[in-house]
Every structure is written in C-alpha cells, then in structure tokens.
Nucleic acid binder design. Structure first.
Lengths: 91, 91
DNA sequence: TAGATAGTTAGATAATCATCTAAATAAAGG
DNA sequence: CCTTTATTTAGATGATTATCTAACTATCTA
C-alpha cells in the first residue's frame, strides 16, 4: 500500500464521489459514468487511478466490468491517521 | 474543512513526514527545514499547504514561527473513512 | 539604527494531472 | 463474420504542482 497513491487518489472530488457510489453497491463502469457530467474515458481514467491505489477492485462480467470497493486500504490509512492524531494525546 | 485540500496536502511524502515530526513535538519552521534535503522556501511552501488544509497551526514567537499539529481535521477525515469502510459491512 | 537571523513571497521551470476526442480492444448476438 | 455495445488506451492540451534562486519582511541585539 502506497500512502501517496492512496491520498492522491482521494484528493479528487470525482473519485471520492465514485467511492461514495460504490459504498452503496457494486457498479459497472458505464453505470458509474452515467452519474457524472464527464466523458467515459475520463471516468475510466479515474477508475484506473482508484484501482492502482488499491481503493477499488474490478472484475469482468461479459461485456461489463464491475467495480467494487476494497475497504482494506481504508483501514490501513485510518491506522496512520489514528497514530498521528492519537500521539497528540500523549504530549 | 475541505476534503480535497486535506487529501491533496496528505498526498505528498514530504508533507506527511512533516506531520510525523510534529506528532512528536511542536517545531519552528527552521527546525523542520533542517530535517529535509530541501531548501527552506520549499519547506515553507509545504507548511503553507498544510496550514491551508487546516492540518497544522502556526504561532509567531519572536523571530521564530512555531508549527503544531491540528488533529481536529484528522478526526473529520477519519469520520468519512469510517463511513465508507463501515457501510461495506451492511451489504 | 545597522547587521544578523528566521521565515515568507515572487517568479521561473520542469513535471504531473484532468479532461477531451479519436482510435483500439473485448464480448455478445444475429 | 459483422455490428453493436462496453470499456480502455493513446495522444493532445490547459491547469496545477514541486522545486529552485533571488528578493523581501520581521524580529532581535549590539
């Protein structure tokens, strides 16, 4: 897990919205793209960024590619954050 | 709190290292700069980015400017993350 | 008030990024 | 096989970013 890749991925509002969508249910690339005022290749690129960061997983199903959240990585990042904001209390 | 600004700020390894330093103790801009193989203006710029995101606070003390962590913002981001990775369990 | 020290601001540059259009790949169905 | 549908890849462009040097501002002290 690269914290840099994860935070870069989370630094874009469109990508965070995609995460919010996938929080509710798995979706195909097309279904995701429908939700945004943006061309499909742009969304595809965002999905690729999220996947490289490990935040989402994809699986082909016939013509479709289904994207889902990978919450493991969120856990790791939360660990780092808790460490940072937790140490504060020891000062 | 702007999630975009916070995640952008956290997306840089130098800035995360600064946070790790401030986790241990408050430091002046100069003390922070000493720890990096980078010119002072670059560190000053990183500190400004962290401050704009609300992740650090600064206070002048004579010639020095003392930087400290603001853990409130980390709490907010963790809330969002817990929501994302928590909803997963309800599916 | 002049000189030294601490830090920021300004301006330049090279690299990265978000988005678009056009073209390519993959699978399904006639 | 040929066409349609789903999605990605390639290539271009404008915007943002990280870093540097040089110049500026603020504070202390002799």
């Amino acid at each position: 897990m690269s914290a840099t890749l994860v935070f870069k991925a989370l630094a874009d509002p469109t990508r965070r919205s995609i995460i919010d969508l996938l929080k509710e249910k798995d979706m195909t690339a097309g279904e995701i793209a429908e939700q945004f005022n943006m061309k499909k290749p742009s969304i595809s690129h965002h999905l690729s960024t999220l996947q490289t960061a490990g935040l989402v997983l994809s699986e082909r199903s016939g013509q479709h590619i289904i994207y889902s959240l990978n919450t493991t990585v969120f856990q790791d990042i939360m660990m780092w954050m808790m460490n940072v904001s937790g140490k504060e209390n020891e000062k």
